[in-house]
């Protein structure tokens, strides 16, 4: 379908524990970006509880959309497109966002597109995010690493909206590994930021941990890393460990970062990518940012990261992905299904 460079898209994102809505102009310019995080609530349980997340989404969704309007000054008649995440994610959470989006589509007659959340994360690299931030240039192919609590994927980006999966994790996602490690060494939830904080004063070489390598394609495997940490902590757990918490955190973080950088650089080299873009919650990690940039530069390419507030789940990336997808493939119809295991095309 035809979308002008000033077309306005309302994005809705409820795939995990953030209830989010945003208005984006022309697939690039963020007019509002509202995220109602449930993080504090889920901290009560030491992790995300799907039933609790779904309840919260159903409670908040319309109010969050209204706030996205209030902050952008946009209202229903101004919009051209609705975009909603249809997977991957928690099925009950996805169903709330998709149901609301369909209600809005019915009410307004606006076209609706269902978005792959991973495609959304990739798109976040191309969003304008303030004067002091540089979005990734539109030069392709680029190689994208999407690393979060739910996914660790590598994708070739051939253009806006043209993404192909070339690598993934065999077991745990990178953020999931960090969450599990944080629990093992007695740090809080969410694990990624907790590990990063604790690691600041630690020695990344203090604890000898493996760098699991599947040797097949560009696949990650983090389960073995967690098992190795369990073994390091045996038999008395972190209280009786000979290692300092800071050293444990720094060493584990380093191992995860090394694996992410190794496979990303290998894939970028193999596919002759002109850029590397990194997105997802784990892309907020400063060690990853530094080491990915350094490793990429050694090979003569630049690595781009969205600002931290766009690394975690948000609806601007969904709106932007919606703009490109609708322009390429047209809208979806009202029978659109959710898919909790949706993947990028491979």
């Amino acid at each position: 379908m035809q979308l002008s460079e000033t077309a306005l898209t309302l994005g809705i994102e409820t795939s995990c524990d953030e209830t989010a809505a945003a208005v984006v102009r022309g697939g690039q310019e963020i007019l509002s970006n509202i995220v109602a995080s449930q993080e504090e609530m889920h901290a009560n349980f030491g992790g995300i509880v799907p039933e609790v997340a779904s309840r919260r989404h159903a409670e908040l969704i319309t109010a969050v959309v209204q706030r996205a309007f209030d902050e952008s000054g946009v209202d229903w008649p101004d919009l051209h497109l609705l975009a909603v995440t249809r997977g991957p994610g928690l099925v009950g959470s996805l169903l709330v966002g998709v149901s609301a989006a369909k209600g809005y589509a019915l009410a307004t007659g606006l076209p609706l597109v269902g978005i792959n959340h991973i495609a959304g994360h990739i798109t976040s690299s191309f969003l304008l995010a303030g004067d002091d931030h540089q979005p990734a240039p539109l030069e392709f192919p680029a190689l994208a690493l999407i690393a979060s609590g739910g996914h660790s994927d590598l994708a070739i980006v051939d253009g806006l909206g043209e993404y192909q999966l070339v690598g993934f994790t065999r077991d745990d996602a990178a953020g999931e590994a960090l969450d599990k490690a944080a629990r093992l060494i007695g740090l809080g939830y969410p694990g990624g930021p907790a590990i990063e904080r604790a690691a600041k004063k630690g020695d990344p070489a203090a604890v000898d941990l493996p760098r699991p390598d599947t040797k097949e394609g560009f696949e990650f495997s983090f389960a073995g890393l967690k098992t190795a940490l369990v073994r390091v902590l045996e038999p008395g757990g972190v209280e009786e460990s000979e290692y300092l918490v800071a050293d444990l955190a720094a060493s584990f973080q380093q191992a995860v970062v090394d694996c992410l950088v190794r496979e990303t650089i290998a894939a970028a080299t193999h596919y002759r990518a002109r850029r590397i873009i990194v997105a997802g919650g784990v892309a907020a990690n400063r060690t990853l940012r530094q080491e990915m940039c350094d490793a990429a530069r050694e090979r003569g390419i630049d690595a781009y990261f969205p600002p931290i507030w766009l690394c975690t789940d948000n609806a601007s990336m969904v709106a932007a992905a919606g703009h490109y997808q609708a322009a390429l493939n047209g809208p979806d119809d009202l029978t659109m299904e959710v898919d909790s295991a949706l993947q990028l095309p491979s």
Binding site: A58, I61, T62, V96, S99, A100, K102, G103, A107
Partner: peptide, 8 residues
């Protein structure tokens, strides 16, 4: 959720 969105 759908009814709330319709009403909204």
């Amino acid at each position: 959720a759908l009814a709330k969105a319709l009403a909204h």
